[in-house]
Design a protein around this nucleic acid. Structure first.
Lengths: 270, 270
DNA sequence: ACAAATTTGTTCGTATGTATG
DNA sequence: ACATACATACGAACAAATTTG
């Protein structure tokens, strides 16, 4: 078996690849036997990253050796390696980035934008382990935009909670949530105990709520967001702004979520 | 009235601002009368960019003078100008980019993702004039991803049409559409005449169709996309992948659209 | 702000083997 | 046998993007 010797990539940090010392090329390739070299190379790399069921195999984001290194190891021209990588990229197994390298493709999770989508359920349904880490909780006066979304007068108190959502330990979303203080005076304390929004709302007498309208945009992450999401500052975040309402239709929450676009895609069923 | 003397910004080109010659500061500001200088400055700039009804006022994307120039003109410190700009940015009137300057905010159009959303109708409903420019039409063998989406065997023929969508003459979206050739043999010819997809489908015996599922992601634009959308390569595009089906539920079109995230936001009503 | 190093992307040119007519 | 087309493979040089110092 051909060892591709990949190094895990923490976040987007480059992390120097462990280049094996220059040595005689692998002779696992058969030349002139009817199977193109690039096909054999593609198969060898595919075996090494072990792409099969989602969540199995090499860690997504792991960096492959450089094209030059692979060419040396297999004893072929860089073009031949590139042809193999091209194939793997077309099949969605890897992602190639100019100036950075090639990486094992992230397995992209779907986030359905239905009226009753809940983060934890969604992640679990895709066989990942959901987790949440509360970043900060504060009580503050509502800015104009927040007040308008929640139907409050500007300056009324709101509870703001910022939470990092993870799937299998990998950060996928930062959510900022605003609740009207006058209706949920205990919200800050509840969320400090248990980061689950659904649970906190239930304990405040709102066992059910609906997502009313969601606005979707995209922008570059702030430095802080890039760190929290463990992603490159050169890749965008998907931003959703949603209003959740109780069964009576009264807005109870404004949530602004920023998704790592490489790890999460939004899905709308019509 | 304070003249802010802005220069239009073609696309994302930096475009040096027309700096007015240093001269005595405006004396339109009243000091020590209970209204903070930055508020007066913010109001003055707001008047000049004429933010009111959407689509009115200064051209979106127009560049404001540099902070230093504004400070000189108003006879205040740069910090004071920054406080004013901060306020305007928070209110969505301008956009400040580190190292580039400040710009009149684009008026963001909403694109509702309903089952029957049509581009032209959507744009018209927001009081803009829709237009479309066909970029290219080709017939080709379906790649794996396209074939799968349309429920075809790989390699079957598909008609591919790429179209630029504009609102008030400003590009907002690039759409790539795939149709199965065997069902719509005349599609290429029809679209060459009239770029309207809805019209072409109607003439092929499909007067109605529904968007089934939409997947939403985000990424950086290719150089070509940045040129077509007249946006900076440093700003992301929103990408939607949607499957449209006839009333019987048979997939008839795969469409991949890339929106200029600064000019268009997607809206989902639940 | 700038320069250097690293890495992928593109475009030349050349050569070989295989299938086709 | 010959010409042609096509995919494969190698080599060199340069362009473009990213990261690092």
């Amino acid at each position: 078996m051909v060892e591709v010797s990949m190094t895990p990539k923490p976040g987007s940090a480059p992390g120097a690849a462990l280049h094996a010392m220059a040595r005689s090329p692998d002779n696992t390739l058969t030349r002139g036997q009817g199977v193109a070299l690039w096909r054999q190379i593609a198969s060898a790399i595919e075996r090494d990253i072990g792409a099969s069921a989602p969540g199995r195999g090499a860690d997504p984001g792991t960096r492959l050796p450089t094209e030059a290194a692979l060419a040396g190891r297999f004893g072929v021209n860089r073009h031949t390696v590139r042809r193999a990588l091209e194939e793997l990229e077309a099949r969605g197994l890897i992602r190639v980035e100019q100036g950075r390298g090639s990486f094992v493709a992230e397995d992209v999770l779907d986030y359905p934008l239905g009226p009753r989508t809940r983060f934890s359920e969604t992640i679990r349904r895709q066989n990942r382990e959901p987790a949440g880490r509360m970043l900060r909780i504060a009580e503050m006066a509502a800015e104009a935009a927040v007040a308008k979304a929640l139907g409050l007068r500007r300056g009324r108190g709101v509870v703001m909670a910022e939470r990092l959502g993870l799937a299998n330990g990998r950060p996928v979303v930062i959510g900022t949530h605003y609740f009207p203080s006058h209706r949920f005076p205990a919200m800050a304390a509840l969320l400090a105990e248990d980061p689950s929004i659904t649970a906190a709302l239930a304990r405040c007498g709102v066992p059910d709520y609906r997502r009313q309208v969601t606005r979707i945009t995209s922008r570059m992450p702030t430095p802080e967001e890039a760190v929290l999401l463990q992603q490159s500052r050169a890749r965008p975040v998907l931003v959703t702004e949603a209003i959740n309402a109780d069964p009576a239709g009264t807005p109870i929450e404004l949530s602004i979520a920023r998704y790592a676009a490489a790890r999460m895609q939004l899905v709308v069923e019509s």
